Amino acid sequence: MTATLDERAAACGLSLTPIAPKVGCRIDGIDLAAPTEEQVAVLLDAFGQFGGLLMRGQTLEVEDLVGFSRRLGTLDHAPLTQVGRTAIEGFPEIYLITNLVDKEGKPMGALGNGEAVWHTDMSYLPSPPDASLLYAREVPPTGGNTFLCSMMAAYDSLPDDLKSLAHSLQIKHDATYNSGGYVRQGMEEHSDPRKTTGTFHPAVIRHPETGRPALYLGRRRQSYIEGYELAESEALLDKLWEYATLPENTYEHVWQVNDVLLWDNRITMHRRDSFDPTHTRLMWRTQIQGSGAPKAFAQA
């Protein structure tokens, strides 16, 4: 008889505890600086099932975080920030998410202290990243919480007629703005989303490991449904977004120092609350390269 995921976890010293009804699981008993092969295998299987994983109490150096992240896949290099910086010197795989500034008052990382709206990381690319990871180094006393929502649960929540229609849709994922609302370097602003730079992806995709369907929306701003009049596209997108972030399908993470939160970028969206700029929030982020373009559920 094949062992269950919980049984395999227990056999290698791990315990799995769901953190919300529809998304996320906490894994206890793992040291991400030196996980065993069996533990990594359990982690990867839990990842596909739950969409997001939380590992608390991790004490990681830069090398440890990069080393663990590489066991999940090929790493992207950190993108340029608004001031042209990338990441920790010598470690281009680690992106600084922080409101810290240098002696000249220039940002040392990305996103500052503002809100980041619901989004899927870099879904404007033909092959968006498979996963993203945040490691908390400093956190404010309040605010800066990260929210995850299950796009598999969002798909399941759709009324039958809207679910059927969604399978036929291709949605443009706009590249103009980042999740903090800033214009990306080299991008030109347009008021008409039909004219923006971006990539069309199916509205319903198949998770490559589990085979389950998920709604795939990216982010709301400047989104557009292929072949529709602009007003019709806007109205239909609003309908889809009504179901995308239902409270019962989400998880709110209140950060503690040394938390690691890992999410599957293909089947979740995430956002962040703003926080008091007089407090510091410092996260190290790694990102797993995309393994391929999102595939329509019916085509996979």
Rank of each mutant, 00 (worst) to 15 (best):
V257K: 14
H77M: 08
Q256V: 06
P129G: 01
Y124C: 10
W255L: 12
E242K: 15
D238Y: 02
D121W: 01
G84E: 00
D28F: 08
G48A: 12
D276M: 07
K106H: 12
L169C: 05
R70S: 04
V42R: 10
Y216F: 13
R194M: 03
H190G: 03
T210F: 09
S291Q: 06
Q256R: 14
L43H: 09
L16A: 04
A78H: 02
G24E: 04
A214M: 03
G143W: 06
G29R: 08
E209A: 07
I267D: 02
V23R: 01
G67R: 15
I19C: 15
K239Q: 15
F147V: 01
M151E: 04
S168R: 13
G51T: 07
Q39V: 01
W118C: 02
T197H: 04
D102G: 03
E209G: 04
Y243M: 10
Y135M: 13
T286P: 06
T59E: 15
P159W: 03
A136Q: 03
T74S: 09
C25L: 15
Q299H: 13
D102I: 00
L14P: 10
S150R: 04
V23C: 07
L246V: 10
I97D: 00
P92E: 03
C25Q: 06
D161Q: 13
R85W: 02
K239D: 13
Y251P: 12
S157R: 14
P208A: 02
E61Q: 15
G112L: 01
Y182C: 08
P79K: 10
R71A: 02
D45P: 14
G84F: 01
L75P: 03
M187W: 03
R137L: 15
P247E: 09
R206Q: 14
A116K: 11
V117H: 15
P140K: 09
P193L: 01
H279K: 09
R70M: 06
A154N: 05
R272H: 14
A153W: 00
F297Q: 02
A3G: 05
E188N: 12
M122H: 05
G114N: 07
D259L: 06
N99I: 07
Y251V: 12
Y177W: 10
V42C: 11
G114A: 09
T98C: 04
C149G: 12
Q82M: 11
A296H: 07
L100E: 14
V66M: 07
N99D: 09
D161R: 11
A293G: 12
T98S: 08
L60T: 02
Q39S: 14
R56S: 12
C12S: 07
M151F: 06
S164N: 11
F50N: 06
K239V: 02
G180Y: 07
N249F: 04
R206C: 14
P159E: 00
P140W: 05
P294T: 02
L148W: 15
R71W: 09
G67P: 01
D130C: 05
R271K: 15
H167E: 07
G52T: 14
L44S: 15
M151V: 03
H77K: 10
E7S: 08
